[in-house]
Design a protein around this nucleic acid. Structure first.
Lengths: 381, 381
DNA sequence: CATGATGACGTCATTCCC
DNA sequence: GGGAATGACGTCATCATG
């Protein structure tokens, strides 16, 4: 009773031959042969035997099948029939073949997708880590200055509080002084001194060009903004400069003394508008202005109609002038650019066509944290 | 000349029957049988028929196979032989079964993994987006206040410039007023009004506890700082409060009027020191103070010797008092905590052991951007 | 180095189920 | 008819051996 006993023929496989294969390559094994088999008794055991011979489709057959499969994984009856005729294959075989091919395709697609997913997953994972790392790290976004998050907010706190205090104090002193002098002493509007109401940030707007002070001689004010286009994700330094007017002589001193507030106000506004303008694109800038074919210059009408400047508090008789030139500024040089702008002697070199001589009237602010960020100069050009 | 020609016998198959299947269910179909047929000739066409009967292993057989597979997907010869004997299956069949089972296992594992990867991928992707969004969005790091990154720096610019302007203006007015009045009008030192020199940030220090104003009645000033320890990487809100003194009656008005600057000054300093102290650890805080065994309280000697407070401008007769308690504050509640501190009625609930009644004397600042960040209250306790 | 055993893979073929 | 599950081989690459 062992199983196969009898049948000794188990392995059979038989024959093979026939098929249409012309082929050749694979061997078709022939071996065994035989026949049949075995036993029938239930008890018997070996069930095996009958095999149909193995049969491999001929390479040519496969090629054609494959070809059709490529165009149409789901051939209809006709196509299959035709193919079966051409390849001397049973219709069933063709059918099976396509079926098997499809499932194979499927699993292999699955495998491929799996690989892709795996690597993308990896990528996302590390990216995620990187970002998280970046978030917790010092570097607070937009500004290149490495400022601890905590300190940034602290610094802002300080600024705000100090601001409030200053306004308060100023208000008090002004009130006091006004009482004694009988007239206002501050140039700042009371409204601006109201705590909580100052920041014009949300929609402040301004005039790029700022004029001189009413009453004083010939004014040729101009404001030049320069921006290095953002290169990569690196932080870009930014310098804002206001050249008030050709004010020389004795009037200068008092002017500086009295109107610094005005300049500061202008600086804030100009900065705002500068950024906005640099970010705008479409019709605001036109190319091919006479003399500078490749440069973009301000489309004045557009500028005037632009909704970006809403305050329009432009003193009479002032001229707005602006040009924009884009170009990659090597990162290493962005600092140099700023420094150049901070050096009065170099102004004439840089804007030789517009400015003959420049003089720093006063350093309103020299910047913070060792950088020039926030620096403000009062320059007479 | 065809190769096989001869063999017409291909299909053999024949018979079938036998298997040991006890089973039954499936039909074994025998179908074909018989004959053979077909042909091999190419021209011929139907090559079919030989089928071996279908054969499905019996459920019992499968169970056992499965059982063994579970323990050992790669049984060796002996195990297979034994199993084949027990199940009346051919050794080959067992071998095949295991082989097929493995590949099946594999693809099915692959499928599963695929699904997992897919959903994890989804998760990572959205998470990534969320984070990026969070980065570019308002939220600048540590503070909960919504401030655009770009605007943050802009805002800082504005703050700084406005600050400079205010100082300037104040200075001017003061000078002016002083001339007329013959004595200083501002409480702020001239030095502090010097641009570029204000920010005491780097190493400012302060007294945690702030006293009342010299001359006025009984003072019991105390400053209470509360910090929720950073939970996770989430931003934590922070509120700084100064409770100046029990000042009631008519003196109050003038006090508020005159000394708001002082309070502001104190607030800035207190904030600084609060943060520093909270970040310090070692000997500055001691546990097990009488009555509060589990809390940490200030080691006063250490505090005095600490290098962190260098200004020491502590008015005479004032008392410093502090305690630190750590605990996780549920994120959802950090906002609530701040709001609680902003509500005078809740002060007595919170610090019942120290404060009987609190009154908001004035909202110096109500915070910015809809949040309480930067808010400053003047509270009488 | 040739050889045999073995496992992973790919194919062909069936049957069942929808 | 199509797809899933399964049985049954054949082939290939690999590894330990004689």
């Amino acid at each position: 009773m062992f199983a196969d006993g009898a049948g000794g023929a188990m392995a059979r496989d038989a024959e093979a031959q026939n098929d249409s294969r012309s082929g050749s390559d694979h061997l078709d094994a022939i071996s065994g042969v035989g026949d049949d088999d075995d036993d029938a008794e239930p008890s018997g055991s070996n069930p095996r035997k009958r095999k149909k011979r193995y049969h491999r489709h001929t390479p040519q057959q496969i090629q054609e099948l494959e070809a059709l499969f490529k165009e149409c994984p789901h051939p209809d009856e006709k196509q299959r029939a035709e193919l079966s005729k051409r390849l001397s294959l049973d219709a069933r075989q063709v059918k099976f073949w396509f079926q098997n091919r499809r499932t194979q395709m499927k699993t292999q697609l699955e495998r491929h997708e799996n690989a892709l997913l795996k690597q993308e997953n990896e990528k996302l994972r590390t990216e995620n880590l990187t970002i998280r790392e970046a978030m917790r790290t010092p570097m607070c976004g937009g500004c290149g200055s490495p400022a601890m998050l905590g300190e940034v907010s602290l610094e802002e706190q300080h600024l705000r509080i100090e601001n409030a205090r200053l306004k308060d104090e100023l208000n008090r002193v002004c009130t006091l002084a006004t009482k004694f002098l009988g007239k206002p002493v501050s140039l700042l509007s009371p409204l601006q001194l109201q705590p909580h109401l100052s920041m014009p940030l949300p929609n402040s707007s301004l005039e790029l060009a700022v004029g001189g002070i009413g009453g004083i001689g010939s004014m040729q004010p101009s404001m030049h903004g320069m921006m290095s286009e953002y290169a990569g994700g690196a932080s870009s330094s930014m310098g804002t400069v206001i050249t008030p007017a050709r004010a020389t002589g004795p009037a200068l001193a008092s002017m500086v003394d009295i109107d610094r507030s005005v300049f500061l106000e202008l600086a804030i506004s100009a900065m705002d508008e500068l950024v906005k303008m640099a970010q705008t694109d479409d019709p605001l800038w036109v190319t091919g202005s006479p003399g500078f074919p490749d440069k973009e210059s301000l489309n004045f009408e557009e500028y005037l109609h632009s909704s970006q400047h809403c305050i329009g508090m432009k003193p009479v008789g002032f001229v707005s002038e602006a040009s924009r030139e884009s170009g990659l500024v090597i990162i290493d040089n962005s600092v140099a650019l700023v420094e150049t702008l901070m050096d009065e002697r170099r102004w004439s070199d840089m804007f030789s066509c517009m400015i003959a001589k420049a003089t720093i009237l006063e350093e309103v602010s020299n910047g913070i944290g060792g950088s020039r960020n926030g620096a403000l100069l009062l320059v007479s050009a």
